[in-house]
Amino acid sequence: MLLRVENLSKAYPGPEGPVPVLRGVGLQLRAGETLALRGESGSGKSTLLHLVGGLDRADAGRIAIDGQDVTGLDDPGRAALRRGTVGVIFQQFNLIPSLNVRANIAFQARLAGRHDAARAARLADALGLTAQLDKYPEQLSGGQQQRVAIARTLAARPALVLADEPTGNLDEATAAAVMDQMLALVAETGAGLMMVTHSPDLAGRLGRQLHLRQGRLA
């Protein structure tokens, strides 16, 4: 089992005491499987993604990736998790503004010690970024920026790809194209994919769908 989440809970501090966001969520994901997380705003789907991605700590419950319990990891441990095991694609601000496209694509792979120039070049080619390699993020369109983010994540060959509304900022046609490329490339690597999305259409293209409602799986 690639990912096992058991009884996960998380609350954020609010003006009138802690506000529970996740209330005992459990799920499983196998390698090569794709899962869509759906739910209304505030249902906790992004929080679930962040906890799985080692970006934040859970209050209670357990997360295991590849059989390894990651719930209790300290800051450096979670940083290592982000570098080596998972790859996260956000809706926006994915890229490092001071690095050009080539360096951005290579960044995570190099941090993880898995950089393969040929693979990076293939990914760039597959995503139609070859002409943009020397440009800086601010010089790219939104679709191009998300393609760079996808290339960068997949270049690091993570076991688990996490995506948070990756096409949420894009127009419909571009969104569809980017989604196609991403799904194809993820399938190629055999990684698991968990994606947060509003869109029933996008969700429908994934293997499974889970609905979150008020911090619980519906």
Binding site: G53, L55, D75, P76, A79, A80, L81, R82, R83, G84, V88, F90, F93, N94, L95, I96, F107, Q108, L111, A112, R152
Partner: peptide
């Protein structure tokens, strides 16, 4: 982004 990609 750098943090998300694995820097503490």
């Amino acid at each position: 982004p750098a943090w998300a990609l694995g820097l503490t």
